[in-house]
Design a protein around this nucleic acid. Structure first.
Lengths: 221, 221
DNA sequence: AGCATAAGAAACGCAAGCGTTCTTTAGCTA
DNA sequence: TAGCTAAAGAACGCTTGCGTTTCTTATGCT
C-alpha cells in the first residue's frame, strides 16, 4: 500500500545524510493526500476543532501548508474530508448491523447490549473525539454537522429502529412501543454522558443502562 | 497622536445633545459591572464561546475594554461570572422543584410533563444557548464546565431523583426502578436533540417522549 | 538522462483578538 | 466648588492562524 514512506535506517548515497533516520522522502499524489487526511484527523481528535490549525496538520504530516492548500481550498473542507473519510469505515466504528441476516438465536437484548458497547467504544476512541469536536462546532458550521448526521448517524439510527421492529415481530419488544423514539434513548444517554457530561462509562454502567432503562422500556408486559 | 478624535461639532452645554437619546451617561461601580455581565451573557448566547470576544462585550456594554480588564483578569473569568450570575436565577431557568411542599394531588407524571416543558424552554432560550456554548467548550476549559455542572445541573438532577423516589412512595413509580439512572433519561434525550442534534422540539414531541418513553419506563406493572 | 511537475520550506500580508497603556473627561465626595 | 477616582475610548504590541507566494530541488515519467 504505502510507498517506502518509512525511513530506511542505513541510507546512504543520493540524498541521505540529513541527520538521523527521519528522512521521510517526498511523497506525492495519493500517498501524500492520505498522510494529510490522517494528520488532519489526528489533529481533530487531539486538539479539537477550535484549536485545529492547518499549520499543525502540515507539521504532523511532515509537509508544507502549500501542499495542503493545493488540494483543499479551506480549512473547513479539509476537516470535512478528513472526518468523512474516517467515519464510515467499519473498522473504525463497526456499527454495521445487517438486520436481515441476523441469526434467529440472537435476541434483541443481545444486540442492544452489543450495540451499547460499540457506541461507548466509538465515543471513547479518537474517532469519538473527532465527532465530539465536530458536534460542538456544529452551530458554527451547520453543513459539516449535517454531513456527519446524514452519512453517519442517520443510517445507524435507521438500523437500530429496524432492530426494534424485528424485536416486535419476535415478541421481544412490546407492540405498542414507538420504535423511532425508543431508538433514541440509548444513543442519547450514552452521548449525553460522554460528550456533554464528559464522563467515562464503565462496563457496569453500560449494563445498568441496558438492564435498568432500555430493557424495562421495551419489555413485553 | 491626535486625541479628541471624535470631533464634537459644536456641542455645548453639560453633556446633553450628543445625538439622540443614546446618551448613556457614564456608569460606575455596580451599575457598570452589571451592564458588562449582561453584555457578556448576551455575547455568549448569540456568538457562542469561541466567537466570544472581550471587544464585542465592551462594545455591547457601551464601555471600554479597560473597564472590563480592571474587573476581570481574563476572558475566561468574565465568561464564568457572566454564566454563573445568570444560570441559577429562578426567573431564568425556573427549575426549582421543592419536592417536600408538593401538594398531594400532583402526580409524578404531571411533574415530569411540567419538567420536560421547563427543560425544553430553557434549552431553547438564550440561557440554553449560553449553556450549549459552555458545554461545547468544556473540554478546553474543564473548570468552567465543572462549575456549571455543580451549580446548575447537579442540584436539578438531585431534585429529579427525589421526585422519582416520591413517586415510588406514592406507588406511581415501580419499586425496582433505578431512580438515579431513570432520572437521566429525560434530560439526556432533550439535550441530545437540542444540543447535539440541533433540532427544535415541538410540543407534541415533548408529549411523545413523556408518554412513550418516560412513563412506560417507570410504570408500575 | 532529461524534463516537467509538484513537494517542502520559509516568508509574507492580513485580520482578529488578547491584554496594556495613555489621555481626556465625567461623576462622586469633601 | 475643587479634587480625586475611574470611565470611555483609542492606540499599541503581541500572538496566532489563514491563505498566498516564492524558491529550491526531489521525484516520476518519457
Amino acid at each position: 500500500m504505502t510507498r517506502q514512506t518509512l525511513a530506511r535506517p542505513a541510507a546512504e548515497a543520493p540524498c541521505a545524510a540529513r541527520d538521523a533516520a527521519d528522512v521521510v522522502r517526498r511523497r506525492r499524489g495519493a500517498a501524500l493526500e492520505d498522510a494529510i487526511l490522517a494528520a488532519a484527523y489526528a489533529e481533530l481528535s487531539t486538539a479539537g476543532y477550535q484549536a485545529f490549525s492547518v499549520e499543525a496538520v502540515a507539521t504532523r504530516a511532515r509537509t508544507g501548508k502549500a501542499s495542503i492548500y493545493r488540494r483543499w481550498p479551506t480549512k473547513q473542507e479539509l476537516v470535512l474530508d478528513a472526518l468523512l473519510e474516517v467515519l464510515p469505515t467499519p473498522e473504525q466504528c463497526g456499527i454495521d448491523i445487517d438486520i436481515d441476516t441476523l441469526p434467529d438465536d440472537v435476541s434483541t437484548a443481545d444486540m442492544l447490549r452489543q450495540l451499547a458497547h460499540i457506541i461507548v467504544g466509538l465515543l471513547s476512541s479518537p474517532a469519538g473525539d473527532a465527532m465530539r469536536a465536530v458536534k460542538c462546532e456544529a452551530f458554527s458550521d451547520p453543513e459539516l454537522a449535517r454531513a456527519v448526521d446524514e452519512r453517519f448517524q442517520e443510517p445507524r439510527r435507521q438500523a437500530l429502529i429496524e432492530l426494534l421492529h424485528r424485536g416486535v415481530r419476535r415478541g421481544e419488544v412490546r407492540p405498542g412501543a414507538d420504535c423511532a423514539l425508543v431508538a433514541d434513548v440509548l444513543p442519547a444517554m450514552l452521548a449525553h454522558r460522554v460528550i456533554l457530561m464528559r464522563e467515562a462509562i464503565a462496563e457496569s454502567e453500560i449494563t445498568d443502562i441496558i438492564e435498568q432503562v432500555i430493557l424495562p422500556l421495551i419489555e413485553v408486559r
